[in-house]
Amino acid sequence: MTGLASAASLFLLAVGLSLIFGALGIVNFAHGSFFALGAYFLFALTRGDAAGFWHYLPVAVAASLVVGAVVERVFMRRVLNRAEHYQILLTYALLLIIEDVSKICFGADYKSIGMPKGFEMPVFVLGIPFPSYYLGLVGLAAAAALLLWLFLHRTRYGTLVRAVAQDREMLEALGVNVPLLFTVIFALGIGLAGFGGAVSLPLQSISTGVAVDAVISAFIVVVVGGLGSIWGTLLGAILIGEIQAFGALVLPEFSIAFTYVLMAAVLLFRPWGLLGRPPAVRT
């Protein structure tokens, strides 16, 4: 039960990473930073007062989308066709820069706000109190997953997003504005990370240093579920969330190591992840 709530947060953190990798082939080491940035935006907008949570949430997400679009236009596009290590280095550079810039802009202290309106009181499940906002968070994550799926599979633009992962040149030949498509995808991925950071703020405190750990968690989730697969990411998030929840209680000494063991095992036996597809052979 509690594992589901952290799964929801993990899913929102990781799904954008998966989306961006699936379509653009970019491994975004700065993804955790955008998660933190979404939380920072929301905190700055509400000035730490939970009353403004729902009101400013869309603004924080919009700001993340804009940041994503700008980063894609200015930086990502220049390394799209370059070797992976340049992409990794570039996004790692962004991680370092965002870390220090947010320290300068938002300060070094812990950011945290209260439970948003409508979720102040716990609910009781089998006589045990359970934070109602956790259910809200699970709902938000489920809604995000569903909307994303509908977008990818039921809209024309979504079809293009999936198609670009398969064959970039063909889309270009068909007259699709591929550069714009890339900007949209990247912004969407970053927007999702920002959304995840913002809705996680009532549950955890955000400070500098969050990004480095968050991005590794996101990698584990995405690798386990399958790079580029939405449902895989969801499965990965639930698995990791539950392992952490139960592992923490049963074998706390091994719970960190165990997530890495799981990651390695998946990579060894199904490198493309539990629900991912084997990569198409590119020549």
Partner: peptide, 30 residues
């Protein structure tokens, strides 16, 4: 919980079920 943990809910549910009168904690910072 590990240092820098972001999800305390499993620990909190466990504590609630163990029904202590008081909980000693050296959790600090974030």
């Amino acid at each position: 919980p590990k240092g820098g943990e972001s999800n305390y809910t499993p620990y909190i549910t466990a504590l609630v079920q163990q029904r202590p009168e008081a909980v000693f904690s050296v959790l600090w910072a974030g």
